Simulated scan of single mutants.
Amino acid sequence: MTEIRFHEMADGRRIAHRFAPGQGPTLVFLPGYMSDMSGSKATALFEMAVHTGRACLLVDYSGCGASDGDFADGTLSRWRDEVVAVIEAAALDKVVLIGSSMGGWLMLMVADALPDKVHSMIGIAAAPDFTDWGIAQMDKGLLADGETIYEDNPYGPEPTPTHPAFWADGQANLQLEAPIEFYGPVRLLHGQRDEDVPFDLSLRLCEMLRSDDVQVTFIKDGDHRLSRETDIAVLMRTVADLLLARDPES
């Protein structure tokens, strides 16, 4: 792994990232909620890119991993702006956005912010709009009143918080209520034993994307994380196949 670099935002917070130069388009991995660039999928992607001479960028959102900030201040809009800033600071021409879980929501927002730079997208159990469908109505009332809610975390000892600012920003950035104006290649991977994000959400996302080049792959025994060796192998094959796709602007 290359050394961690930092991009300084206008307010002084430093956004940690790793960059491997190489052939483009640059693979950009967007982690899930409360995750960072040290995860198994991000690490495998980066190692594959280095081994094959592909450009790759990993990013830690503020309040996550090695980046500055408090997680409680994090919102989708804030994290989108950080990802956009790092991409622009690196002067990347074309990128492939690879979003895991919440990162699959964020990639849609980044693609909207950088329409001329995004070559294609890969969603891994993409979870757009989970502040709407993934939170009980009674909890939404608490969030609307400014309270943080906590849920059991199947992946660690600490409960998972949802902060009011994150929820409100999510509700302001719902993606599945209207057609999504993206026309490049999209690949969606989803485990059918995902207990966190219903696998039919990938079908809904497929329906809402304007692109005609969208493929959905279900992994029948796959869970939400899709981090087994066999799952990561599917991701690597998907990336390799997508890089052969014709640039939609060429």
Score class of each variant (00 low, 15 high):
T2K: 14
I4Q: 02
R5S: 01
R5W: 02
F6D: 03
E8K: 00
M9C: 02
R13M: 12
A16E: 06
Q23C: 10
G24L: 08
P25V: 03
F29E: 11
L30E: 13
L30T: 06
P31C: 15
G32K: 05
S35F: 09
G39Q: 09
S40R: 03
A42L: 02
T43P: 05
A44R: 14
A44W: 07
E47G: 11
A49L: 03
V50N: 09
V50T: 10
H51C: 04
T52V: 10
G53R: 13
R54W: 08
C56A: 06
L58C: 14
V59T: 14
D60V: 10
S62R: 11
S62Q: 13
S67T: 10
G69E: 01
D70Y: 06
F71P: 03
A72F: 04
A72I: 06
A72H: 02
D73K: 11
T75S: 14
S77E: 13
S77L: 09
S77G: 13
R78N: 12
V84L: 00
L92R: 01
K94P: 02
V96D: 05
G99R: 12
G99H: 11
S101L: 12
S101F: 14
M102K: 13
G103F: 14
W105V: 11
A111H: 13
L114G: 02
P115W: 03
D116K: 01
K117C: 06
V118D: 01
G123D: 10
G123T: 10
P128C: 02
D132A: 14
D132I: 08
W133V: 15
G134P: 11
I135N: 09
Q137K: 13
M138D: 05
G141R: 00
L143P: 03
A144M: 07
E147P: 04
E147H: 02
E147A: 07
T148Y: 00
E151N: 14
N153D: 14
G156S: 05
P159C: 04
H163L: 07
P164D: 01
A165V: 05
Q171N: 04
N173V: 04
Q175V: 05
E177N: 10
E177C: 05
E177D: 10
E177T: 10
P179S: 11
F182N: 07
G184F: 04
V186K: 09
R187Y: 08
R193Q: 15
R193L: 12
R193D: 09
P198T: 08
F199T: 07
F199R: 08
D200C: 09
D200I: 06
S202G: 13
L205N: 12
L205T: 09
L209S: 04
R210W: 07
R210D: 15
S211C: 02
D212E: 15
D212G: 15
Q215D: 15
Q215C: 15
V216Q: 13
D221K: 12
D223V: 11
D223W: 10
E229P: 05
T230D: 06
D231G: 04
D231H: 04
I232E: 15
V234W: 07
M236Q: 11
A240R: 13
A240N: 09
D241I: 09
L244V: 06
P248R: 04
S250I: 06
